[in-house]
């Protein structure tokens, strides 16, 4: 809890399409209400580098872990947040980015950078500063401890609102057939 009494929140975007963040913005006028209760300390929409993320109460992560950089970012956030929320199917189960898990990394890179139909002269980037693909795209919970999962691809605004308001009220969201949705 920050000095102004607000809950401190950071969000992070790993291997995902940003649809979950878009869905978060779909909270529309409820964002104003949320703004009274939370302090957004870091997010892809506020341009703060990952190593500047301060200690927060809630960390919300969209996307799965696909490369070593994302793994580092995720561990960093985990160390600085009390509750880690996996937002959306990619963060929870890998989802579409995990489709590549059936193939060896070399084949994936070859396909993506060289064989794509629109590519004329392609090459696989080899610069050592580039993030390195992990052998498999992994859900968050295979890397760090996850406290809350919000399923959906993306979770719709109502689902996100339900989960956040429950957390703000000091409760864990409960999932059943009325609010679960994997698509």
């Amino acid at each position: 809890m920050s000095t102004n009494g607000k809950i401190k929140v950071a969000t992070m975007w790993l291997s995902g399409c940003s649809g979950c963040h878009m869905s978060f913005l779909d909270l529309d006028e409820r964002l104003l209400e949320l703004g009274k209760a939370i302090d957004l300390k870091a997010s892809p929409i506020v341009d703060i580098k990952f190593d500047q993320i301060p200690e927060v109460d809630v960390g919300i992560v969209e996307g799965c872990v696909n490369n070593n950089e994302q793994e580092e970012h995720l561990r960093h956030l985990r160390d600085r947040c009390k509750i880690l929320v996996a937002l959306g199917d990619c963060a929870i189960m890998g989802n579409v980015p995990a489709l590549r898990n059936q193939f060896p990394v070399d084949a994936v890179l070859q396909r993506g950078f060289v064989e794509t139909e629109s590519t004329q002269i392609g090459e696989i980037p080899m610069d050592p500063v580039m993030p390195r693909l992990l052998a498999k795209a992994r859900p968050l919970k295979e890397i760090v401890k996850v406290d809350v999962s919000i399923p959906g691809c993306p979770p719709d605004a109502d689902t996100i609102w339900y989960a956040l308001t429950e957390l703000l009220a000091g409760r864990m969201p409960k999932w059943d057939e009325r609010n679960l949705k994997y698509d």
Partner: peptide
Amino acid sequence: LQHQAYLHGVDSIRFPYLYPAL
């Protein structure tokens, strides 16, 4: 499968995914 998972509140999977190549 999805219907049963909804009925049983499956929000995440506690086991590692096998991601078999099928």
